[in-house]
């Protein structure tokens, strides 16, 4: 397969995935109930008023017409409609919360990927050492502990028992954003605990994955040959072993960037952190179709973009893909 055919195939697949996700979410969301059901319990609301509010949201049309409107508004005007809970444009609500989630998750994913990669390769290389076994046991234990409970333990330990970190929020109450050192310090103070839990947990669980992929390579003849040729340990470790184990690792670790909103839900719940993960969860629970749809478009788009970047990295790393 040439590079071009490969890329075309991937792009077609990406678009199918994108439409699959947003279509599925659009129609399934309408099975979760009526977002305006509460209005009917309000005695001040006459049926005419309720009907006109429904018409405002397009709920008087059949679902497939609503779907066409949704696509039209998104692609032609870049609008996602109004959030029924926030009573504001969906894109404004999401853009207000997204920076908090991105600022928390991107550095955490990057650092934990780096740690998982370096430590994973290292413990694969010294697979018989005591430190390696201890880390593997720790990693298995870590992946059995429910993540949200680990976060609760950290919250209890550092914020309640020791009292050195705040108990909720991304900044102190009453603090509004400004480009000041005071704001930034307050922000970092709130940032420290969620960041630490997220990073620690994922570094330890992905470390095991890196180790297992790397160990498969260690048995290859070319590794043995490279050692026989007298290359230094570090050279063999990174130029022969890790280099060949890298492809599946890049996919698994790279895809984490596509699922930022997903990874943020539990953290934001435990630490009452105002971000998009919690926002999307609440959109599902309160049947705010429009907010959910808008968030899913962002998510589906990031799945596609991240996959595309992973493909480019693949081509850079693997000459078999690059030269076809």
């Amino acid at each position: 397969m040439t590079v071009r055919a490969h890329l075309t195939r991937r792009i077609v697949f990406s678009f199918i995935t994108f439409f699959f996700i947003i279509t599925l979410v659009f129609f399934l969301a309408r099975l979760t109930g009526d977002p305006l059901a509460e209005l009917e319990n309000d005695p001040r609301m006459t049926p005419e008023v309720i009907a006109s509010i429904k018409a405002l949201f397009g709920l008087d049309k059949p679902p497939h017409m609503q779907y066409l409107d949704f696509l039209k508004n998104m692609f032609l005007y870049g609008k996602f409609g109004y959030s029924v809970t926030y009573k504001r444009a969906v894109e404004d609500v999401i853009l207000e919360k997204l920076p908090y989630t991105l600022a928390l998750l991107i550095p955490s994913i990057t650092l934990s990927n780096y740690l998982a990669y370096r430590i994973g390769v290292e413990i694969a290389w010294r697979r018989t050492s005591k430190v390696s076994s201890a880390l593997i046991v720790l990693s298995i234990f870590m992946s059995s502990v429910p993540y949200f409970w680990l976060a609760i333990l950290f919250l209890y330990g550092f914020s309640v028992a020791l009292g050195i970190t705040p108990i909720f929020g991304a900044v102190s109450p009453g603090m509004s954003f400004s480009w000041t050192l005071e704001w930034f310090i307050d922000y970092l103070w709130h940032y420290a605990l969620p960041f630490t839990v997220l990073t620690l947990r994922s570094a330890l669980s992905y470390m095991l994955y890196v180790r297992n992929s790397t160990i498969d390579i260690l048995g290859e003849d070319y590794v043995f040959a490279a050692i026989a040729r007298g290359f230094s340990n570090n050279y063999v470790k990174y130029k022969y072993v890790a280099r060949n184990a890298l492809l599946p690792i890049v996919t698994v670790l790279g895809l984490r960037y596509a699922f930022i909103i997903d990874g943020a839900i539990l953290t934001e719940t435990v630490f009452s952190y105002p971000g998009t993960g919690r926002l999307v969860y609440e959109a599902i629970i309160s049947r705010d179709y429009w907010l959910l749809q808008g968030a899913m478009v962002i998510l589906a788009a990031s799945v596609i973009i991240v996959n595309f970047i992973i493909d480019l990295i693949y081509m850079y790393l693997d000459p078999r893909v690059r030269r076809g």
Partner: peptide, 23 residues
């Protein structure tokens, strides 16, 4: 299978649960 694996796991489970609970 590939498409399904490119969905966010937790979010998708939450979403499906919300759908089925309403049935």
């Amino acid at each position: 299978v590939d498409i399904w694996l490119s969905l966010p796991q937790l979010l998708f489970t939450i979403f499906l649960a919300a759908v089925f609970i309403k049935m």
